[in-house]
């Protein structure tokens, strides 16, 4: 359960929305860096803040399922920059009222905390590896809170009627388990709709998909996402509900005070 923090990864393809409108015609003149930057903002930085209820179903290779239910709060310090996340668990019963909090920093290690209610303990979490399972799901921490675009080199390998297809290669391959990944970015709203991960033998082993996009407060938003482990056949589906942007969540919510005392007003 210590890895609860990985849940954040879900956010990456999850409830965070894309910026509205840019015509596909205009898009053609965009540089690769423009596409990457827009997609990053669309996937992780829509609105100044936001909230979503997340219902995660984890299915293992033998079709046994487990459930994770939590509410996530996000607040941006600035677009494309540092962010704060607050994740409050409601299921399963043994992690009820646990809280995972992250201060995400660009270019340096995040600050992460875990609150264990039975002990009233505020724990600090060491997590240099961002490609670890989030709360036992098939989502990685990085899927959700976002992989720093500067960690990869990007190449536009195809433009279809609907998508830009980017090949992303890590600058430091020792830090990650993939050799590269392909990303399908929707030309209208710039949300990443599909990601395929390839191992060092160029074999695809992992698939991340946006299964449903809805427009919420004029922000196109992924409301259902799925990660499949192609080696084991296990997969996790996340469904996002009660999504709201620009609630005016104060920065003080992301402090020890509200780790020990859940901010009910924002979790509804």
């Amino acid at each position: 359960m210590r890895k609860i923090f990985l849940v954040m990864g879900c956010m990456a393809l999850g409830w965070i929305s894309g910026p509205t409108v840019e015509s596909p015609a205009q898009g053609k003149s965009l540089s690769v860096q423009d596409i990457v930057d827009r997609s990053n903002l669309a996937a992780y930085y829509e609105g100044k803040d936001g909230r979503a209820h997340v219902n995660m179903t984890i299915t293992d290779s033998q079709e046994r399922t487990r459930e994770r239910r939590f509410t996530i709060l996000r607040r941006d310090n600035k677009d494309g920059g540092d962010q704060k996340f607050y994740v409050h668990f409601s299921r399963p019963s043994d992690v009820r009222n646990m809280v995972f909090m992250v201060w995400k920093h660009i270019g340096q290690n995040d600050d992460r905390w875990l609150y264990l209610p039975a002990l009233d303990l505020v724990k600090r979490i060491a997590a240099s590896d961002k490609r670890t399972s989030f709360v036992g799901s098939h989502f990685f921490y990085e899927d959700v809170s976002g992989r720093n675009p500067a960690d990869d080199t990007h190449e536009l390998i195809e433009t279809t009627g609907q998508y830009y297809v980017l090949k992303n290669t890590p600058k430091n391959s020792d830090e990650v388990e993939f050799s590269h990944y392909l990303l399908w970015i929707d030309k209208t709203h710039f949300l990443p709709m599909k990601a395929e991960y390839y191992d060092k033998n160029a074999k695809q082993y992992r698939l991340v998909e946006a299964l449903k996009v809805e427009t919420i407060q004029s922000h196109p938003t992924v409301t259902k996402a799925k990660v499949t482990d192609l080696n084991s056949g296990g997969h996790t589906v996340s469904v996002f509900s009660k999504i709201e942007y620009d609630l005016g969540i104060q920065e003080s919510i992301f402090t020890e005070r509200y780790l020990r005392r859940a901010p009910r007003k924002w979790l509804k």
């Binding site: 060491a126 590896d129 670890t132």
Partner: peptide, 12 residues
């Protein structure tokens, strides 16, 4: 001092 040594392996 505590650190994640490898994926899902922590040492303190």
């Amino acid at each position: 001092y505590t650190q994640e040594l490898l994926t899902d392996l922590n040492i303190g």
